[in-house]
Amino acid sequence: MRILGLLAAMAGLIVLPLISSGYVVYLANLLLTFTVLCLGMHIVIGEAGQFSLAQAAFYGIGIYTSGLANTAFGWPLPLSVLASGLVAALVGLCIGTLALRMRDIYLALATFAFGEAMQWVFLSWTPVTGGPNGLRIPPASLLGFEIVNDRQAYPVVLAITILMIWATVVIARSRLGRAFRAVRESEVAALAMGVSVQTTKLAAFALSAFFAGVAGAMFAIYSTYIHPDSLGFQTTILVLTMVVVGGLGSFSGAIGGAIVFGLISELLRQAPSYQEIIYGLILIVFMMFAPRGLFAFIGDNLKRFARA
C-alpha cells in the first residue's frame, strides 16, 4: 500500500512538467524548495528540540553563495549546491556555538536576532547581494547545459529534493538521529548515556543550516531574482508554520506541511495584506487544536469516525 502510494507519487512528479503549464512547474519547484527548508527545520526543532528561528538567514546565505559561485567563480552546479550548504552550515556552526549556550525562549530570541542581523547584512552588502536593488541570478549550468526556465530546472530540483529526503531518513535512523531525540527528550538522561549534549545540539543546528543552504541553492537554479525582503522573519515563520501544520517531530509531516501549506500561501499571495494575519491564525489554531499536526489530526478523527 505504502509502496504503491510512493510509486504513484513518483510517477506524478515525473510526468508533472510534461502535462502542466509553466506556472504549475514553477510552483512545484517552489514547493520542493520549501520541502527541503522544512526538512532542515524538522531536524533542529522536530528531532533535536532546539528552537532555532534563523532558517531564512541560512536560506539567504545559500542563495547568495550559489549566485556568487555561478557569477564570480563559474562553478558547476553540483559544486555550487554543495558550497551553498557548506557555507550555511559553517555560519550555523559559528552562530550555534554562541546561541546554543542558551535554551528554549532565549535560544529562539538569539537565533531570531541573528536572522534579523543577517537580513540587514543582505540589505547592506551591495557587492554580493545587490543590496536594496536585489540581485539578478544568472542561469545555472549543468554539464555545459544552461538552465533557463522552470521546466529545465525541475528535474534537478526534484533530484536534490529526493536526495535531501533520503539524507533526512538516514540521519534520523542513525546514531546521531537517536542522539538528537535523546537530547530533545531529556538532556540529563542523554548525558548519562554518554551523549555529548552540546556537540549533538550543534550538529543539529549545523545540519539544519546545511539543508536551508541547499534549499537556497535550489531556489537559485530556477529563480532569476532575489531581494532581501523575502529573506526575513516572515519566511522563517512561514517554514515554522509548515512544520507545525504538518506535525512537529514528524518527518512525513514536514514534507506534507510544506506542500499543503505552500499551496495555501501561494493562494494567499492574492491578498498580501492579510497573508501574515492568516499565517498567524493558522499557527495558533493548530497549536491549540491539532498540536500533532494536520495529518495526525485527520488520522485521529478518521479512526474516531470509523469506530462510531
Binding site: R181, A182, V188, A189, M193
Partner: peptide, 25 residues
C-alpha cells in the same frame, strides 16, 4: 534517576538503544 528521566516520546526499544549509544560508534 530517582524521578524517572526517560525519553518519554520514544519507544522502549529506542530508549534502550540510546543506552547503547557509546557502543554504536
Amino acid at each position: 534517576f530517582q524521578n524517572l528521566e526517560l525519553f518519554n516520546e520514544l519507544t522502549v526499544l529506542e530508549n534502550v538503544m540510546i543506552g547503547a549509544h557509546v557502543h554504536c560508534g
